[in-house]
């Protein structure tokens, strides 16, 4: 048990970037906007977060800046897909390529530098709990915020008026419009906020988890998050489970690498991706119907009021 607890704690940290990205994408997709440019947005977030922290020395500023840059990218995506009604898959792919390329270019002279990052913060009482305390409650603030975010989103989507409006514009924009909701404004708002959360996930990697910047450092986590949204059937709780699953395998393979096994490193590094996808596929077998029922019906479909069908 004693050897397992640090791995589990590391699993939570390692899963947190994916959790932020998945939550961001859930918010975006619930509004009916598909943004598959997560990888690019995460990378831009990671670079922004790192640079701002490096120059100001304050991780908080870095993370806020990352959120702002993500929101700007979300605004671009919203403008292209909501206002101009262009193809959202193409926009998303463009976002991925742009984010990957731009962050590599702009981050060239920051490779190899390090920052201090964020110190862990024990939560009184809760961190004293056996096992759970050290796994969940001796982490940094960003992890705690992600916990709160998960529960808040569940509550927000289910029990609040803006949450209901958000679901409505993603499920039946025509009905939402006929009932007087400003469909375009709502869709844009959540595409922007969602992208901000995605960028925060990227920034967590560079500012808190690794404390350095490297080209393509998210290494496909954005794509895992895109898949995770579907397997989580747009449910924030299940998104957390999926993210920690990835984090768990990642933490485990890092230990193995450190311990020095005869298994080749690239194979080990593949492990979290392969296992996550296998597990996700396995638990979704036979749930096709549930997935198609939970999917926002108007996902990826632009809405124009005066278009006649």
């Amino acid at each position: 048990m004693e050897t397992l607890i640090p791995i589990l704690a590391a699993a939570v940290r390692s899963g947190t970037p994916i959790l932020y990205a998945t939550l961001g994408e859930i918010v975006t997709e619930k509004a009916g906007i598909m943004n598959i440019g997560l990888e690019g947005i995460m990378l831009m977030g990671a670079l922004t977060g790192f640079s701002a922290t490096l120059s100001t020395g304050r991780p908080w500023l870095g993370l806020s800046a990352a959120f702002a840059v993500g929101a700007c990218l979300g605004l671009i995506h919203a403008f292209l897909s909501v206002t101009l009604g262009s193809n959202q898959v193409v926009c998303g792919l463009a976002m991925t390529m742009f984010g990957g390329g731009a962050s590599a270019l702009m981050g060239r002279n920051q490779v190899g530098m390090t920052i201090k990052g964020m110190a862990p913060l024990d939560i009184p009482v809760l961190s004293e709990l056996p096992i759970l305390g050290r796994v969940f409650f001796s982490q940094d603030i960003m992890v705690y915020i992600s916990f709160i975010l998960v529960f808040f989103l569940v509550f927000f989507l289910r029990c609040t008026r803006p949450g209901m409006d958000l679901r409505a514009v993603g499920d039946n924009p025509r009905a939402a419009d006929a009932m007087g909701l400003p469909v375009a404004r709502i869709r844009c708002t959540y595409a922007i906020l969602g992208a901000g959360l995605v960028a925060l996930g990227g920034a967590y990697m560079s500012v808190v988890y690794n404390k350095f910047w490297a080209e393509s450092m998210t290494a496909g986590r954005g794509w895992i998050a895109v898949a995770m949204v579907i397997f989580a059937v747009w449910n924030p709780m299940r998104a957390a489970l999926g993210a920690y699953l990835f984090g768990g395998v990642d933490a485990f393979q890092l230990r193995l690498q450190a311990a020095g096994t005869s298994v080749p490193t690239p194979l080990l590094m593949m492990l979290p991706y392969i296992l996550t996808i296998l597990v996700l596929v396995f638990i979704s077998i036979g749930k096709g119907r549930k997935i198609s029922l939970s999917a926002p019906s108007a996902l990826g479909v632009p809405f124009y009021r005066e278009e006649r069908d």
Binding site: M164, R167, A168, D171, N172, R174, A175, A176, A178, M179, L293, S294, S297
Partner: peptide, 10 residues
């Protein structure tokens, strides 16, 4: 409307 403006998943 003829096709009711209802959100079916609500």
């Amino acid at each position: 409307h003829q096709h009711f403006m209802l959100v079916h998943t609500h």
